[in-house]
Simulated assay, not measured.
Amino acid sequence: MADGTARGMWELYEPVHDLVYFAPEARRAADALGMRGFWMGYFALRAAPLGLVSPAVVTGSFYVFHPERVARALPDAWTYATPAQVLAARQEAMDAAMTRLFGPRVVGSAGFAEAADLAWQAAAGADTTGRVLAAANQALERPEKPAARLWQGLTTLREHRGDGHVAVLVSQGLGSVDAMVLKAAGGESDGAFLRETRKWDRAAWAAAEARQRARGRLTDDGRLTPVGAALRARVEESTDAAAEGPWTTLGDAGTDRLAAALEPLARAVEGAGLLPPGNPVGLTRGRYPAGR
């Protein structure tokens, strides 16, 4: 959006959403279901709204992971727990994580309940046409507990933005590794962290770098050229534009109230040291604008 609302809201809700990956409650919930290791838990917890889909569907919708990374987790995860069981476990885990991290008084407050309802309203109003992960999350039932409701609403919004981002990358001809190479070259994330956690080998990464150098987007020492920087700017601006719908629907007043409520929560997650230093989602650390 021209006023930066879509990006500013993402900076606020992304850290709260990320609790499902990095909060100890999430790992304990996955372990209790029988999931074997972090990655099986990650893919099961995130993909559960899609149901019993194949690894190919998850690879395509998640976009940046090597198919082997996904295939090591799915469909084996569904032999330990059904998607419905995983959804119930992640909801309880997020309620427990947010209650511990933000405190029972905050989670039980009227302001927190209002934030949960505003997030749910924004998510319910999002157009999920062509957005598979967002549509699957949007279709879930409204949680009774405010913490779980807030987390699920923010997660729908996060996947809505992510689905739009993938569409932009496809429109720009940027494959999985190419997109990550440019992201790292722009200083948004650590390239080695992205490559290793998404399970791409050095040869695939080097080939993507060579492609981007050949197109004038990377310097020989791996930095963005002006052409590359302009492409990255177009990608981010288009992603922001595609993510503006929920905030237009919610309106300025509701968006501002939700932003004000999310700001201390985002700071609390950041302050707890739960997010990995490789910054895989490219958050601008320490910048949590409240409102516009």
Rank of each mutant, 00 (worst) to 15 (best):
G222C: 09
A185Y: 14
Q172N: 14
T197E: 14
A206S: 10
R213K: 11
R232L: 15
T219Q: 05
H165C: 10
A204V: 06
L157S: 02
R211P: 03
L157D: 02
G222T: 07
A214I: 09
W200M: 04
A207W: 01
D163I: 04
R202L: 14
S171E: 15
E188Q: 10
W205G: 12
R223P: 02
D178M: 09
T156K: 04
T155Q: 12
D201W: 09
D190C: 10
M180T: 08
R202Q: 14
L194Q: 05
G216D: 01
W200Y: 09
A192D: 15
A229R: 13
A229G: 13
R217Y: 10
M180C: 11
T155M: 13
D178E: 12
A192I: 05
L231S: 09
A229C: 02
T225Y: 00
D201T: 06
A206V: 12
V166F: 04
T219V: 06
K199S: 13
A167E: 06
A185I: 06
V168G: 06
A192T: 08
V166N: 08
A229P: 03
M180S: 12
T155F: 08
L169K: 02
D201P: 08
F193T: 10
E209T: 12
D190I: 01
A179N: 07
G187S: 05
R158T: 04
R213G: 07
V168L: 05
L154S: 05
E159L: 03
D221Y: 06
L182Q: 00
D201R: 01
V168T: 04
A229Q: 12
A179W: 00
M180I: 03
E159M: 04
A203I: 10
D201M: 03
T156M: 00
Q212G: 02
D190S: 08
G173F: 04
L182V: 03
